[in-house]
Write a protein that binds this DNA or RNA. Structure first.
Lengths: 230, 230, 230, 230
DNA sequence: AATGAATGAGCATTCATTCAT
DNA sequence: GATGAATGAATGCTCATTCAT
């Protein structure tokens, strides 16, 4: 019989307090068997806490929140992570990977650079339907809070932003190289605008609860992208 | 003899615990004498805590932080505000007013609508030199944190954003009316782009610590504004 | 024009916060003009706080409660009393005097000792209609709380109880002397039973919210009193 | 090695601040091994705080008092109880059970109903020697304070009073049924008098610090009980 | 005599973290 | 590897009291 509280064959069994929910391990663990049980538990904690950190922020998320959302005990969380910071960093990385995996996947299906770039406005237009974006852009959420108060998270957010910028720049340069994109495009400027516009527009949508401002910005971004064409 | 801890002739006298700083009352109290001492103290608390709330956020700012930065005791803060929430809301309003007063002031000097609109990119380009913007846009900082966790602050941030949008829209419509601006400009779209671009670009600057991305976006915004010309 | 917050010609004028009530000085001040304004304010504070102390107890009554119920400021209360203890003691004395004045008044109308003694069960039967008893017997309320925690109040409660006992004993002895009451009545025992029965029965009534237990005890007490007859 | 602050083999080991007392777990834990450590600690907290709550009341008992009397930290108390209210309710229940267990035990030794009823005056006569009564009747103490200020405790006190009344009524009815007690006894009245007399007399004893008034009332109660005899 | 701003110790409660089991 | 009891510093907030005005 499985011991209560364990993660058993990919299935969480422990019931905490009055919560009689059985929580299924996320699909990721099914895809490839993880080496050790510890690795699986770590992954489970990260997946479950990721959205809480994205919504409530680092300071606003307590260990009690983390216990509730994972169904695990404090001891168990501390057995797998050094402290709350380490979980928060892992959760941020998970959140960011969810976004970038989704976008990379969509881009792989597209034949041209411009089509690939159009994945950005299309994705953020539908952010509310995507669980990993519905609470806002993890980079924006993390970097506004972590500024000064949490240098390690701030650095992670900055790395993510740099990664994003580099991805866009690579696409632009590749497009220029294969004559798909006008040669005189200002790569730095275009990248700055694309990323800034998306983050600013997401903020407006989250703040106002309305989609029209975000849609207006995404319309503009789409026409900007199409005008890159050589 | 002034009682220790009082704000006397515009100068804080009390030293709390290990903090041997003498804090000058902000300029506002010198400009015009306020009705009551309580009003002055309230104003003083708001001014001193405003930047802490902007940097650390609501959850990250403790009453101890507020004591340290004001040099006042807990009791004194609670004598002037109902609770931490009330201070945070007042501090946000102060932060936002600082920004909008600055921008309104700059705009008043400008003769044309387009010149007035150019105040935005100029201001945010120099955000690091402006104390009320150096820690980032208060709207962005507040709305990313307060989402879900603090409905009242979220609402305040949304109101501020709406106010900003309305200001921009009014300028555009006035410009269209007096033939300074092209009649076919999409007001909603332009407003969305201007505000989103600024907030997104500010976020990048704060996150990376570099100015080039912000400057690139502001360059683009400036040319967009100039192209509004009829 | 009367200064706000003063007690002027026996009428409270100050309005605190949202309480737009004008509070009339109690009848006592009208009966005989008090020497000084201070005396009148002291009396006013005592009268207004007396029932709060009787309901919430000493520890449960805060200065904020006292401010609300009097409409006065803290400074004003402290200008008239050394501290909260002093108000509490005065309030207890006031409460007790209200009860004993009422009972003395009723007794004066009665011709015989036995009729006088019957005032007790009659009074406590109707405790809920008498403002100074509706929150319970002040002696019981004070002595249960003040035990150990507040020696001065405990002593006051004990003095009040002794005064009550003495009153009953005097009546019994006078009745024995003038042959109205049987000579062999055990005065100590009868006094103990009368006072204990009343306090115990009051407690039951307050606790249960029902009158039948109190009435049953008062029925019994009445028949006990009538059987005293020689 | 036992961790400091733990309750180990029934013995509290941790010393808090200036309190160098070693506190023995109460006899109850020795009698039967409790399921979990948490249950034992909860029981320990209840036992240690019960008399403090009975003496100082709910409002008068602080968490610092509770820490001192248990030797535990705040965190530990809050690990075992949701809040102060929950401890107070448990402590009241404990206090009441101590009294009713004692009385039930004494009654079991007695052959007749009248002998059983005599347990009441005998017990309360000796209240000062019984630790759970020496600070006064828990029902009286709780119900006078909790009135209005603490509805849950008030309800508990009322339940306890009802339980007591029912116990007395059952005895009387059983006595009437088996012809030991006069059939025309007014059960409601007798029960009311017995309980009210005891609570009132206890109050006098606690207030005056003298036993003669209590003894006089108990003498009377004893003769009342004996006169029930058929 | 009364005000009201300020005090700072104290309040109940929650926090991230530890560690014997 | 996981548990859960315990820690104690820190949290937001209220308290009775003081005193310059």
């Amino acid at each position: 019989m499985p011991r209560k509280g364990c993660i058993h064959y990919g299935v969480k069994i422990k019931l905490i307090k009055n919560t009689d929910r059985y929580i299924l391990m996320s699909s990721i663990t099914k895809k490839f068997e993880m080496a050790t049980k510890a690795d699986r538990t770590k992954q489970f904690i990260v997946e479950q806490t990721a959205s809480v950190f994205n919504v409530k922020g680092f300071a606003g998320t307590s260990l009690t929140d983390m216990m509730e959302v994972t169904g695990l005990t404090k001891g168990s969380i501390y057995g797998n992570f050094k402290n709350k910071d380490e979980v928060a960093v892992a959760a941020f990385e998970h959140n960011f990977q969810q976004v970038s995996n989704y976008i990379r996947g969509k881009m792989e299906e597209r034949p041209s650079i411009i089509e690939k770039l159009l994945v950005y406005p299309e994705t953020y237009r539908n952010f509310s339907k995507l669980s990993f974006l519905s609470n806002g852009c993890p980079i924006a959420n993390t970097s506004t809070e972590a500024d000064d108060t949490h240098p390690q998270l701030k650095e992670k957010a900055n790395e993510a932003l740099t990664y994003w910028r580099n991805s866009v720049e690579k696409l632009l340069k590749a497009g220029i190289k294969n004559d798909e994109i006008k040669p005189d495009v200002n790569v730095l400027e275009f990248t700055s605008i694309l990323t800034a516009l998306i983050q600013g527009a997401m903020l407006h949508a989250k703040s106002s609860g309305k989609m029209n401002y975000l849609n207006a910005s995404m319309n503009y971004l789409e026409s900007m992208i199409r005008e890159l064409k050589n």
